[in-house]
């Protein structure tokens, strides 16, 4: 599956979409879900929680293993996707539409520090060899 060009990425395999109003939608990448396998449990951060960049804020659990999800930038959680919590397999079906939570970034300019699709593609390739 190709890596969407309109999204931003983190080295820890989260994707970030910058919405028109400047808020950020966050999920985990197709590559991450592919390696983790069937998702069975998602724990999202509470709405209103203030996150530091890189803070552990969510958990994804596949049949195989549990793993942390990190805040891509500093900000406040403005919503969490209840649908993905009740149907974690949505992440396996389409990782880029099954978002996990939305952030209001503390500083809009921080998004520029995230990876673009080409850089993320390189990271995935380098980890595979």
């Amino acid at each position: 599956m190709s890596i969407p060009a309109d999204l931003k990425y983190t080295p820890s395999h989260e994707w970030v979409r910058v919405e028109a109003d400047g808020t950020l939608t966050v999920g985990i990448t197709h590559h991450a879900q592919d390696l983790l396998g069937d998702m069975v449990f998602i724990e999202n951060p509470a709405t209103g929680r203030s996150l530091a960049k890189g803070e552990e804020c969510a958990v994804v659990e596949s049949v195989k293993a549990a793993s942390d999800v990190y805040a891509p930038v500093a900000g406040e959680v403005i919503s969490a996707n209840a649908d993905v919590e009740s149907s974690p397999e949505a992440i396996n079906k389409d990782a880029y539409s099954a978002w996990m939570f939305k952030l209001k970034p503390a500083n809009a300019a921080d998004v520029a520090g995230l990876m673009d699709a080409a850089a993320y593609q390189k990271l995935v390739e380098s980890e595979a060899h």
Partner: peptide
């Protein structure tokens, strides 16, 4: 006792490619 997503992805990619 919990791994980060990055760690797991790295380990599993390495397993797949070893």
């Amino acid at each position: 006792k919990r791994a980060s997503l990055k760690f797991l992805v790295t380990v599993m990619s390495n397993q797949a490619a070893s």
